[in-house]
């Protein structure tokens, strides 16, 4: 992906964010927002994302939004399970550290995996190093969907897709 393409992409995202912040809109918001977004996007492209882009295009943004809803649907029942553990007077905990090797190879996918693990009740991502994900789980049963690889698969179908956005 070319540097100019990256610049346009970053600046567009920043400009949209500026518009969200300044609702209700008027002309001076546009006048200030556009140069600010172009400048910040250019600086970010030149220094923060010099070697690669964040790897987020329109398709992936849609995928992430969809994935967020999917995630909430997974989280709520698991949260109730953890709630039961917390409220149980005997605290039925059996914490274990497990190491999972993920097939995902893209930055965004791995970060999404780590944050999904952290947000899913019962598991907490402790370390991410290459494809090794170290996970602390409250009891081994919580990590089932991680170990059998269905979590990796769900992420790669939502935001990996058949072709990358880059």
């Amino acid at each position: 992906m070319s540097a100019v393409h990256r610049w346009v992409q970053l600046s567009t995202a920043l400009f949209v964010f500026w518009l969200v912040l300044s609702m209700p809109l008027d002309l001076s918001d546009l006048l200030w927002g556009l140069p600010a977004a172009v400048a910040a996007g250019g600086l970010a492209g030149a220094f923060l994302w010099r070697e690669a882009s964040p790897g987020i295009g329109a398709r992936r943004v849609a995928g992430l939004v969809f994935y967020t809803f999917d995630l909430v649907r997974q989280i709520v029942p698991a949260a109730l399970q953890v709630a039961r553990v917390v409220l149980d007077p005997a605290l039925p905990l059996d914490p274990k550290m497990i190491v999972h090797r993920t097939p995902l190879d893209d930055d965004l996918e791995r970060v999404t995996l780590a944050n999904t693990i952290t947000l899913t009740p019962g598991t907490h991502c402790v370390d991410l190093d290459g494809d090794r994900v170290t996970v602390h789980c409250l009891s081994p049963s919580f990590a089932a969907s991680l170990i059998d690889g269905s979590l990796d698969k769900r992420i790669s179908t939502s935001i990996g897709g058949v072709e990358r956005d880059e």
Partner: peptide, 23 residues
Amino acid sequence: FIGTLGLLRFPDFYTRIHAVTKC
């Protein structure tokens, strides 16, 4: 409330951070 309870009741740092981040 459950997060607060977890923070106060759980036995060590790793289990507490579970309760806290999620809740």
